[in-house]
């Protein structure tokens, strides 16, 4: 229980460190699934471990021990967890609950806004809605079974095959329900802040996934690369202010995502790297396994403390 209980923190930190690299190295669909699942499992293990750390102290509190069959003194003596740690763990759990709750509320509001937007846009499930807007952009709204929105300015600036690439990209987002990946990993990051880099990594992976999906649908990766680059240049010329997050990026920063996506489409397709996937999977399995094992230890701890009570109780009865 000593080490195992802290393992989710360690693997969370490790995952956070390698998330971006995994998103760039692996085929995008693999990366998106791997990072989402790893994030959710490690985050769950984190909350679980915190709960175990906290519960030993709760068990030591007299009113609660009175409900259970274990002895507070025996539990306190046997518990390998210092009280301060338990208190911290309990507080951390509270903070996590609040953060996750806030993410959930924000997402629910966003979903409602998306539904309102869809209703305003009209059209049926999966329809393309063209809006008269000077901004050069397109997006998918994942509500009411999805709408793809594109501005007339964007469509007008692209040749027919590239227009199809844009629409295939957006429908891929809807078809593969990429918003669920993003929601899941955002909740995971709320539960374990060390997993925060996974949010951006999954974002990037789902973009790349949609790019590759569009490329497969059109039978050409170069067309999607052209569509991205041309639309990007057109948008840069049309309006720098609304489209580009310029202020947040310094000149020394990594190449921006649009550049990475175009470069990835022009490079050979990513290799599958089963070894790398296995290594990440092993890390997650180890973490979850250790947490389950620690939970068993924690149960034993309470049980052992219960046995002690049984031994001590007959004492006064024998010697009245």
């Amino acid at each position: 229980m000593h080490v195992a209980v802290y393992l989710p923190l360690l693997s969370g930190a490790l995952l956070g460190l390698v998330a971006q690299r995994l998103a760039r190295l692996l085929p995008p669909a693999t990366a998106a699934w791997l990072l989402t699942c790893a994030g959710v499992l490690v985050a769950t293990a984190t909350s679980f471990a915190l709960a175990m750390l906290a519960v030993t102290l709760v068990g030591e509190a007299a009113p609660i021990a009175a409900l259970g069959p274990w002895s507070t003194t025996a539990l306190e003596a046997a518990s390998p967890v210092p009280d301060a740690t338990s208190v911290l763990a309990g507080l951390a759990l509270l903070v996590i609950a609040v953060l996750a709750g806030r993410v959930a509320i924000r997402r629910a509001k966003a979903a409602a806004a998306a539904r309102r937007l869809c209703a305003a846009l009209g059209g049926g499930p999966g329809d393309l809605v063209v809006v008269d807007d000077p901004a050069v952009d397109a997006f998918a709204v994942p509500a009411l079974r999805g709408r793809v929105v594109a501005s007339r300015a964007l469509l007008a600036s692209l040749p027919a095959d590239e227009r199809r690439a844009v629409l295939a990209h957006e429908s891929a987002h809807l078809r593969h329900r990429h918003h669920r990946h993003r929601l899941a990993v955002e909740l995971a990051a709320a539960m374990n802040p060390l997993l925060r880099p996974l949010v951006d990594a999954v974002d990037y992976a789902t973009e790349r996934w949609a790019d590759e999906d569009a490329a497969a649908a059109l039978g050409s990766r170069a067309v999607v690369a052209r569509a991205l680059a041309r639309a990007g240049l057109r948008a840069a010329a049309a309006d720098r202010r609304t489209v580009w997050g310029v202020a947040s990026m310094s000149a020394t920063a990594d190449p921006s995502r649009l550049i990475l996506r175009v470069e990835a489409l022009l490079a050979p397709a990513a290799r599958r790297r089963p070894g790398l996937v296995c290594a990440v999977a092993m890390l997650v399995i180890l973490t979850v396994g250790a947490t389950v094992e620690a939970q068993r230890d924690s149960e034993d701890l309470f049980e052992d403390s219960t046995v002690t009570v049984a031994v001590h109780q007959p004492g006064p009865a024998l010697n009245p």
Binding site: R106, A110, G232
Partner: peptide, 13 residues
């Protein structure tokens, strides 16, 4: 959050 993914990402000038 409202919009799943905009086709274009940020780009530095």
């Amino acid at each position: 959050e409202v919009v799943l993914a905009r086709f274009l990402d940020e780009l530095h000038p």
